[in-house]
Design a protein around this nucleic acid. Structure first.
Lengths: 141, 141
DNA sequence: CGAATAGTTCAACATGAATTGAAGTATATT
DNA sequence: AATATACTTCAATTCATGTTGAACTATTCG
């Protein structure tokens, strides 16, 4: 029954899924999450972020670069002293991310089973999508 | 102005942020996203997932293990033939994830700047959190 | 009982990305 | 012009995790 092909069928194919996959990679770093949390609390410069998080300036720059490339963060230089660079969240990009995530992981989207393989005799004994919870360490906090 | 400490200040500290950091790591893999997408479309067994995604059984098992540990996926064996194992999304865990994500990345949470450092002369010229968008490759699709 | 099947686990290896340390760039001050 | 300041960029190193291939486990069938 295993006849997997050699093409890249495992890469998300819709534009939405590709967007989400890329964004999730950007978010799945504790330090970047911490930076984003601080920027949610207000516009900040590299040294403010570095002070608050105990990170060197170059590492802050690196992570901010990743966030900027992802479109989540924007930068502006101080008008009085251009050495100061301020970073802030791009509200629209954040809202769009929230929409996409909420849509992809919407529980209302869960469907019933459509069997494509299984035992020859009896159909799978599944009355509803939720099975009895047997494992999981993190879901419940 | 750089006086970062050596403690683990960069690790998200609240329980919510830690939960989110862990979950995002689980989600930030294209193959796991693809698996989740298929499970959203209905309960499936290893070989159905493997066929659809062109992945070997052991890799499917590995990723499903990660998803189960995260509490997002549950398993049940077929009652007629215990060799068949079905996987499905844990609806409640998914709903909780959606809530946490939506809350953390809620644009309404964005605050104004509270300066902790900057040029000595003029205060930062920031009237509102949104700055003019200057960069970003992915945010707009 | 042996063979087949569905899936799981293990460990080595590969890969991608974060971190580190140095160097570079631009701006401001003396 | 020299020095200080706030970052940014680069490249080597380190680290975390995905992938591969083999071995294992449990169940079913002839």
């Amino acid at each position: 029954m295993l006849n997997y092909s050699t093409d890249n069928a495992t890469i998300p194919t819709t534009a939405d899924a590709q967007y989400l996959a890329r964004m999730l990679k950007v978010l799945a770093d504790p330090r970047r999450l911490a930076i984003l949390e601080l920027l949610m609390q207000g516009v900040q410069c590299n040294c403010e972020l570095g002070n608050a998080l105990g990170m060197p300036a170059n590492l802050i720059s690196h992570h901010l670069g990743v966030l900027r490339k992802a479109g989540l963060v924007v930068m502006e230089r101080d008008t009085a002293d251009a050495r100061w660079v301020y970073y802030s969240i791009d509200r629209e990009a954040l809202a769009e991310l929230n929409r996409q995530f909420g849509s992809f992981f919407d529980p209302a989207r869960i469907q019933k089973r459509h069997p494509a393989c299984g035992p020859r005799s009896a159909p799978p004994n599944l009355a509803k999508p939720e099975l009895k919870r047997q494992e999981g360490e993190w879901g419940e906090r």
